[in-house]
Every structure is written in structure tokens, then in C-alpha cells.
Amino acid sequence: MKKSKFDLAVGLFVAAGILALVFLAMKVGNLTGLETSEGYRVEARFDNIGGLKVRAPVKSAGVVVGRVDSITLDSQTYEAKAILRIDQNYKFSKDTIASILTSGLLGEQYVSLEAGGDSVYLGQGDRISKTQPAMILEKLISQFLFSKASESTGTSK
């Protein structure tokens, strides 16, 4: 089969397409990051997860260390059960506190991990026992109003 004049152009075309895909994967997406490294899964239960979504970041000191793998409701305790996948490179002590925070006032919610002092580390399948639920704005406001009201009734008595 003789070589055709199209070979070079088509070769370059395919190479450019693959290069674009690599660019999307590496620079635009997060293929290099956590998705490729295996990581380990830990469980955290919250009274309320607020607006937390699957795939939301798990951060410690602002650094992304993992992602929320799944969120389900435990029908016995009526707690939200979140499975967090954490990068293998990061170790957290048993008494780590998991809380749901919001980036900015209206930004997306994420799980924040605050390491404690325990010398035993969390491993695959372990459970984070200390958690703080998401702050629900309405609850905060009503709590605030309630405390104000009880304050004022207290002083008037």
C-alpha cells in the first residue's frame, strides 16, 4: 500500500485531538489529583448535612484532602451518613472532628476535618465519632431571636 498524502495531516490531527484531551484531563479536570489515588473511606454521621453534595471536597486547614463519596440516611437513627474518601497520603487521628462548613456566605458546602491529638489513625471503614452538623441559617436566626426574647423577658422580670 503506498503512502498517501493524507497520512501526515491525519496523524497530526489525531495527535492534536489526544493532546486536547490530555489538556482537559490534566489542566481542566482533576485527573492528576485525588481521583487516581486510591484513598481510604471513613464514615461520618451528621444530624443535618444542610446542602452538602456528593463529590463535595473534604478539606483540612483549607487543603483538599478528599471527597464526599456518598450520602445516605440511616433510617434507624435518622442521621445522615456520609462516606468520605480521603487521600492515602493524609492521616488523621481517631478523634478528628468533622464539620460541615460553607465557603463564603453563599458558596458550596464542604466537610472540614480538624485533627485531634490521638496517636491512633483513622483507617478504611472507620467512623469519625465527633461531628458538627451544617449550620442552617434559619435555625441560627430562630435560635438568636429565641435567646434575645428569653433575655428580654428575663430582664423585665
Partner: peptide
């Protein structure tokens, strides 16, 4: 990079 997932989006 934080918002675009390789498998889910790309």
C-alpha cells in the same frame, strides 16, 4: 480543577 471531574464531566 476542583469543580471539573474527569469521569463525570470529561
Amino acid at each position: 480543577q476542583a469543580g471539573v471531574d474527569f469521569r463525570l464531566d470529561i
